Amino acid sequence: MIGGYIAFKMKCNRADVYQAAIGGCLADCGMAKLPPSLLNKRESLTADYYKEIHAHPIFSYKMIKDSSIIKDSVKVAVLEHHGRLDGTGYPKRLKTKPMNLFTKIIAVADVFHAMTSERAYRKKQSPFKVLEMIFHDDFGKFDIAIVKTLLSSSLIFP
């Protein structure tokens, strides 16, 4: 829903707001293909475990790729939502082509949600602290206009 909210605040049309919300909701659906023991680990992950987790966007994409109600650009965003503007991220590095708007929105929404949510391996963090970290620590990784949109709305959103 955070992706839809960002799209709304960016004055996207209603259809694109819905698509951003749907894409954000489905971005991590591929986690359902991973073993629960991996998802509930409290200790540090090994390289092999990271490799498994890094496959979830591919699983997510495969689960939705044939849907006729999801725009192709949103399907790509689901696949690429862990990519970053500086070419880092997974499942593939994205230095060779620009990210579409849905990818950029869902990337910010996903990291914001992940960091403000309780996890087996860490406590949730304050939305304001997370926004500060995204804005400063991850500068250059996310679209600054999208980060500023979420930042400017943060007082009313939580």
Rank of each mutant, 00 (worst) to 15 (best):
H54P: 00
I64L: 10
K65H: 08
S37L: 12
I69S: 11
I53S: 04
K51S: 14
M99C: 05
G89R: 09
N40E: 15
I105K: 01
L38V: 14
A47C: 07
K33F: 05
H82V: 03
P35G: 09
M63G: 03
S60F: 12
R84G: 00
L101E: 07
Y90R: 03
H56S: 04
L94N: 07
G89S: 06
S67L: 10
P57V: 03
S67I: 02
K75M: 06
K71Y: 14
K65Q: 12
I58G: 00
N40D: 14
I106Q: 01
M31D: 11
E52R: 07
I70N: 02
D66S: 11
M31F: 02
N100H: 09
H82S: 08
A55D: 10
A47G: 05
I105H: 00
K75W: 11
I58P: 02
A55P: 00
H54L: 03
S44H: 14
K75E: 11
V76K: 10
T46A: 10
K51P: 07
V108P: 01
P91C: 06
A107I: 02
Y49L: 12
P57C: 03
V78L: 02
S67T: 04
S37Q: 13
K104S: 10
E43H: 12
K104E: 14
H54D: 04
V108C: 10
A47Y: 14
R42Q: 15
P35L: 13
H54G: 03
Y50M: 07
K75T: 02
M63Q: 08
H82P: 03
L45F: 14
Y49E: 15
P91H: 04
V78W: 00
Y50F: 14
K41R: 14
M99Y: 09
R42G: 15
L38T: 14
P57M: 02
A107T: 10
K75L: 07
L34T: 09
V78Q: 03
I106D: 02
E80C: 07
K71S: 12
I64E: 08
K75V: 04
Y49S: 12
P57H: 03
K65T: 06
T46G: 08
V78K: 02
V74C: 10
M31P: 01
D48E: 15
L94Y: 05
F102Y: 15
A47W: 12
K62R: 12
H56V: 00
K71E: 13
D48K: 15
P36R: 09
T88M: 07
I70M: 08
L38G: 13
A77D: 10
L34F: 08
P35N: 13
L79T: 05
L38I: 13
G89Y: 08
A109N: 05
A47L: 11
K41V: 09
R84W: 01
S73D: 10
K33E: 14
N40P: 03
L39Q: 11
G83V: 01
H56C: 05
V108S: 01
D66H: 13
H82R: 12
K104R: 15
I53Q: 07
L34H: 09
V74Q: 06
E52V: 06
A109I: 00
G87E: 00
N100G: 09
K92L: 05
S73W: 02
S67P: 00
D48M: 15
A109H: 01
